[in-house]
Design a protein around this nucleic acid. Structure first.
Lengths: 263, 263
DNA sequence: GCTCTGATTGAATAATGTATTCTTGTGCCA
DNA sequence: TGGCACAAGAATACATTATTCAATCAGAGC
């Protein structure tokens, strides 16, 4: 998983200084090459130790590791950029709203592909295949996606139900057992009731698959298999729309996996 | 000139230790990433100061500079190695199934953006905004998309219903009037009953918006506003999956349009 | 409101890493 | 043999990075 993505995704859950650092690095990625931890600290206006701690919090051994990782993903990103800049990979007509939307979706799709390990996707597919019954639950913003997933699963011959309303969710979850799967889908907030359902289910040995916002999302930590979408950098409404695109991409990934295993 | 080449070229004019260092770096380029000057010195069997002097002799400010330069050219070489010049489309991990899927989706998205005129999309958005009630009907393969659209419309405050079953579709359509909109969604076949519903509705002055397969699709010719998806060139199952992606892209285009006009 | 707890921050400092200086040893030539 | 040039490493100065610790702040519970 690329470290710039990680930063973007975690921005919401960061402290003030950490966010300042993340913003700066995202804005001035290439400058980092020649910055020492002290220089970066001065430019951003924090202490040197904060820079080091920031690096460690993101999972690196220290500042040099972060720097290298950033540099790596920057090079990678620059390469990708040049790809759809001129190559046939791009949407040519920026006047067309569908193209503009597609442009933005592309980024989300790439991020989604980048953040989810192939093994996790495979595990999710296996869990779906192996499940007797699948309960799909969602927070209010993801109901549409949940319905979409549920219907697709039904078409594939999986015994899936989408349950609305937290009381009913609890009730139904109570009837699930070790052979079953609970799939929770969540975007921004509203996950509290889902967490309860998930915990309840897990106590009965039900496997839990989550499809949530990266990174810390209460619903995801109570899951056996976690899939993520990274929110885009847009105004709220568009962010939600794009987020659903990412979710749908994951759903399509699952469906495609189920299809190929069927053959 | 890249620093690895420089080293290779100068090998003859180097002292024993310098040559040892050059050889090692050329042989173990990628290892350098995690070596400090001391570690490199130990591995090669020279002193740490020799490493620094070697770096400076090659024209770098010091060991860290050399390290970065080596790393850069290594990455460059690796990229060239991995082939096809630049990563088309931007998904750089072809081993990741989500990326592979994204690659294919991208094509569909582009085609979809290319085939639908901006005015038609705008007209569709206007029609949705202007409608009192919206009936969504779909062929069997597009039910999931229809449900998705319906839910999104409801979230936006549009009075939308998805009607399943051709008799009921007819019945409900009968109650629509001039201020209403019928939205028919169709992919491959199964459109006969939809055509009937559409005709029936139009007789009563209902506007009809269609979202179908390009090009000739019986359902589309009986519509006022036509949006299209171009099927991809894949095996049947994947084709259906990708087709739904295209449909969803259109749906997202509609939603995004409705959102922006709302503001 | 108040206190407690845990998180965040930066100053000081320890630990590590890098560059320079200085000394030694070797080979070469007059 | 003395003088010189140069390579090499030890010692050390300098720079960067990591950790510790105390002060401060934010939220939870009373």
């Amino acid at each position: 998983m690329t470290c710039l993505l990680k930063m973007r995704a975690m921005r919401d859950q960061m402290s003030v200084n950490e966010r300042k650092l993340a913003e700066f690095i995202l804005e001035n990625t290439k400058l980092l090459r020649d910055y020492s931890s002290q220089q970066l600290a001065d430019v951003v206006g924090v202490s040197q130790s904060s820079v080091v701690k920031f690096s460690q919090k993101l999972g690196y051994k220290g500042y040099p590791s972060l720097k290298l990782a950033v540099y790596e993903t920057y090079a990678e990103a620059a390469r990708a950029q040049s790809g759809h800049g001129e190559g046939e990979g791009g949407f040519f007509r920026p006047d067309n709203p569908l193209s503009k939307l597609g442009q933005k979706k592309l980024e989300v799709l790439e991020n989604t592909a980048g953040i989810n390990e192939a093994e996790h996707l495979a595990a999710a597919i296996a869990a779906i295949r192996g499940a007797r019954c699948i309960q799909v639950s969602a927070c209010s913003g993801s109901v549409a996606v949940a319905k979409y997933l549920t219907y697709q699963l039904l078409e594939l011959g999986c015994w899936a139900v989408f349950v609305e309303g937290s009381q009913v969710q609890q009730r139904i979850a109570g009837s699930l057992g070790g052979e079953d799967l609970l799939c929770i889908i969540c975007d921004f907030g509203g996950e509290e009731s889902l967490v309860e359902v998930a915990n309840h289910a897990r106590e009965q040995g039900v496997k839990v698959l989550s499809l949530t916002r990266y990174n810390y999302n209460a619903a995801s930590i109570h899951s056996d298999i976690r899939l993520f979408v990274v929110p885009a950098d847009e105004d709220e409404q568009m962010q939600r729309l794009l987020f659903r695109s990412g979710q749908l991409h994951l759903v399509e990934g699952l469906v495609s996996g189920l299809l190929s295993q069927e053959a």
